[in-house]
């Protein structure tokens, strides 16, 4: 369909929103953002609730202790642990990039891989510790 104004013609749009198609540094970056938002929404209030409950009384402390003994609670905890650890390691990588360490393409890709691996390893270590 021809249009009198070439600029107003419908141009094809293509958004590749599949995260798996991102290069490693992009994956680390979007996970950094997602984990940040998730921790803001859920981890901050959860930590305050647990802190309040466990410090209020012996009964409250024991109640949270039995909640954390439940496998589902441990899984949720591990989800938060991964979020925290990934965000932390990705943050260290950004601090290094700020001071021009590892800014070339290859080091940036391998450091991104290391960040992803460290987040998973730290989560597994905590998993072993709590199970």
């Amino acid at each position: 369909m021809p249009s009198p104004h070439p600029a107003s013609r419908q141009r094809p749009k293509y958004y590749d929103i599949n995260l798996l198609h991102l290069p490693m540094p992009g994956l680390v970056s979007i996970f950094h953002r997602i984990t940040g938002v998730v921790m803001f929404l859920f981890l901050i209030p959860a930590v305050l609730f647990v802190l309040q409950g466990t410090l209020s009384s012996e009964a409250g402390f024991n109640q949270w202790k039995s909640i954390f003994a439940h496998p589902l609670a441990k899984l949720i905890l591990l989800g938060f642990v991964w979020s925290y650890m990934h965000h932390l390691f990705a943050g260290i990588r950004y601090l290094l990039l700020d001071v021009h360490v590892g800014t070339a393409l290859e080091p940036a890709r391998s450091s991104a891989r290391i960040v992803l691996a460290l987040g998973v390893i730290a989560t597994l270590l905590v998993g072993v510790r709590i199970w």
């Binding site: 953002r33 940040g36 938002v37 921790m39 803001f40 901050i44």
Partner: peptide, 13 residues
Amino acid sequence: SVYYHAWIGIKDV
């Protein structure tokens, strides 16, 4: 530190 950091981060998002 968490709250200030969260404020800047969420504001950017």
